[in-house]
């Protein structure tokens, strides 16, 4: 019985990998947004471990996508350098801000900006 459950858990995780692979591979983003809740759901563990595990999984997907973009010459290296520095500074600020802001406020800002950005991208 326990073996059967383990088998189904592995099967679920493989399914989770397939879904996040489609999204992250096609859009170059979004894999983590799906993986954190899905891994938390399958493992019944919504902790820092789910976030850390997701980060490693998405890293592998991004490395694979990077190889494809490199082979197809779809990389602007100057842009990567500038945005890489900006993202690094921003993520350090974000990590500190996380301790001082309420989760619900972050989530509301996050959802609002996403919807607004999506609508603007369709219109403009």
């Amino acid at each position: 019985m326990e073996n059967k459950n383990k088998f189904f858990d592995i099967l679920k995780l493989v399914g989770v990998g397939v879904v996040s692979g489609i999204i992250n591979g096609f859009f170059g983003a979004g894999g983590g947004l799906l993986l954190v809740p899905l891994i938390s759901f399958v493992q019944k563990d919504n902790s820092k471990k789910a976030h850390a595990t997701t980060l490693v999984c998405v890293m592998f997907m991004c490395i694979a996508s990077s190889v494809i973009y490199f082979l197809k010459k779809q990389i602007d290296y100057k842009l990567v350098l500038v945005c890489g520095i900006g993202s690094l500074i921003g993520s350090l600020v974000g990590t500190k801000l996380l301790k001082n802001l309420k989760n619900n406020i972050i989530d509301l800002v996050f959802s609002g900006v996403l919807i607004l950005a999506g609508v603007c991208m369709i219109i403009f």
Binding site: V18, G31, M61, A64
Partner: peptide, 15 residues
């Protein structure tokens, strides 16, 4: 469990 299917599918999706 996740990286093998995820990386393979992500490669195809990127192509």
């Amino acid at each position: 469990c996740v990286i093998f299917p995820a990386t393979a599918i992500a490669t195809l999706a990127s192509i």
